[in-house]
């Protein structure tokens, strides 16, 4: 397993946002993380990304327990997060955004040409054909193109696990399809993808496995091929579905 979370817990003061969450993601697969608002999806992501410390449990990467204390630790382990609100600078161009914080240097000067070449190679390796001019400011791109840049930024760093937080939330139909295709391509290239979404159509279109969070607990992890939409909806809304999910005694009640 590339990434394994065991018994992960996180509290904000008296509120237990995540309790005893188990999740495993392997290279080459897209794992969707679903759950209602406040189920703890974003908190889970931030724990893995090193933005929040964890209060219990363990994060294991390649079978080795890791202590992730900051975004840099996560990046060093090959974990990259693409945030919902697009962490791009509108005034910088595509290349500048892709390399922000990790600029290629030639002595004390920026090596812009090398960065531009590398950016072009990365985008073409992802079969991105929608972005023609790498030197246009990101402000002039469409939502789908911006999301593509954000994802490419995560891929550029030889990352192994890419976490996408609602990447299609603000996109139209055609642009959503572009981004979903890109996500599939990441997994096909051997990356692990953790994909967070509210949209079950998108989830079923792209995911290999579906993990449903319910009030900070992992209700169930299903193979997408065996699951139905109604099952997943039940898991999201009530934490169980038939024999799947959390037991009646733990249904929302905290002990």
């Amino acid at each position: 397993m590339l990434l394994e979370l065991t018994g992960l817990s996180k509290r904000f003061g008296p509120v237990e946002v995540l309790s005893d969450v188990d999740l495993a993601i392997d290279a080459g697969e897209v794992c969707a993380l679903v759950g209602d608002n406040g189920a703890g999806k974003s908190t889970l992501v931030k724990c893995v990304a090193g933005i929040h410390g964890i209060d219990g449990g363990a994060i294991t990467v390649d079978g080795e327990a890791r202590h992730i204390t900051g975004p840099r630790d996560a990046a060093a382990l090959g974990i990259e997060v693409v945030y919902q609100d697009l962490a791009l600078c509108d005034n910088l161009d595509v290349v500048e955004n892709l390399f922000l914080g990790r600029e290629k240097m030639r002595g004390m000067m920026l090596d812009d040409d090398a960065m531009e070449q590398l950016a072009a190679e990365t985008l073409s390796s992802l079969a991105v054909r929608t972005i023609r001019n790498l030197r246009q400011p990101v402000a002039s791109l469409s939502g789908g193109q911006r999301q593509t840049v954000a994802i490419a930024k995560a891929v550029l760093w030889n990352s192994r696990l890419v976490i996408l937080d609602e990447p299609t939330a603000a996109l139209g139909v055609a642009q959503t399809r572009q981004v979903l295709e890109l996500i599939r391509r990441l997994a096909d290239q051997g990356l692990a993808v953790l994909y967070i979404s509210h949209n079950l159509n998108d989830v079923f279109a792209v995911a290999d496995r579906i993990a449903a969070l319910y009030l900070g607990r992992m209700a169930a992890v299903l193979d997408a091929a065996d699951a139905t939409q109604s099952q997943v909806v039940e898991l999201i809304t009530s934490g169980r579905s038939g024999t799947l999910g959390l037991g009646a005694d733990t249904n929302g009640a905290r002990t």
């Binding site: 609100d85 962490a87 600078c89 910088l92 500048e96 922000l100 914080g101 990790r102 004390m108 920026l110």
Partner: peptide, 24 residues
Amino acid sequence: HRTRFGRHLYAVGGNREAAVRAGV
């Protein structure tokens, strides 16, 4: 325009949160 510091200045002015997340 030619140093990392300059690039980061523009990044901070464009989207401070993005700059933080990029490790600036």
